[in-house]
Each structure stands twice: as C-alpha cells, then as structure tokens.
Amino acid sequence: MIEGSSADLRSPQRQLIEWQMAHADLDALIDQACLAPLPLDELLLRRLKKRRLALRDHISKLRQLMEPKEPA
C-alpha cells in the first residue's frame, strides 16, 4: 500500500470530485424524469432537486475552504 493513500481518500479535492459527480448524476436523473412520457412522482422529484441543491451548497463551501486566503 502506498504511504499516505488513506489520507488521499478523504482529501478535500477528492470530496469535491465525488460531490460534483453526484451533482451531475442528479442533474441527469432530474432531466430524464422531466422528459419521460410518464411523469415521476412529484414528491420524489422535489426530493431529488433538494438533494441537488444541498450538494451544490456543499461544493460551494468546500471550494471556498480550498481557495488560498488572500492577504489583507
């Protein structure tokens, strides 16, 4: 096993990528559901959209934490 690899599994960069992938998956799922001939359950659709919004918020906060601090 490579030294430090367990720390890399939970690095902010990796977490950001995982959240971005989950957000993209939800985007695709919501788009497909809206275009489907039989509409998806409205409650389920709202839950998916809420989850997508929460992921977007997490992504935004993590990006802010990862940005280097500018000197005052």
Rank of each mutant, 00 (worst) to 15 (best):
Q20W: 06
E18F: 01
R14I: 02
D41N: 00
H23R: 15
L29G: 07
M21P: 01
L44W: 00
E3S: 15
L35P: 02
P12N: 05
A36K: 09
L62S: 10
S6E: 14
I30L: 01
I17D: 14
A54D: 13
A36F: 04
A72I: 08
L26H: 04
R52S: 11
L40E: 05
A72Y: 09
A28D: 13
R46K: 07
P68N: 06
L43S: 10
R56T: 12
L40F: 03
R47H: 15
D8P: 02
L40G: 04
A36Y: 05
S11Q: 02
M66C: 05
E18C: 08
P39W: 01
C34A: 14
M21R: 11
I59D: 06
E42Q: 05
Q15Y: 06
Q13E: 11
A36C: 11
M21F: 06
D25Q: 05
A54L: 14
I30V: 04
P37H: 08
Q64Y: 04
D31S: 09
I59Q: 03
L62V: 01
Q13L: 03
E67W: 09
A22Q: 15
K49G: 13
K69Y: 11
R46M: 06
A22W: 12
I59V: 03
L26Y: 06
L38Q: 14
L44V: 01
A24R: 09
L16R: 00
I2S: 09
L43C: 06
S60V: 09
A7E: 14
D31T: 09
Q13W: 00
C34K: 13
L43F: 04
D8S: 11
R56Y: 13
L16F: 04
R47W: 01
L29K: 08
D25I: 03
R46T: 05
L65G: 03
D57C: 12
I30C: 07
R63Q: 09
P37N: 05
P37R: 08
P39D: 06
Q64G: 07
M66F: 03
Q64V: 03
Q32I: 02
A72E: 12
A24I: 07
Q15I: 12
L55H: 02
E70M: 10
R47A: 12
I30G: 02
D27G: 04
L29P: 01
E70F: 11
L35I: 06
L40H: 01
K50D: 15
A36E: 07
K69T: 13
A28K: 07
S60L: 11
M66I: 07
L65N: 11
R51N: 15
Q15V: 15
S5T: 11
S60I: 07
A72F: 05
Q20G: 12
A22E: 14
A7H: 13
E42F: 03
L29F: 08
L44Q: 10
A54K: 13
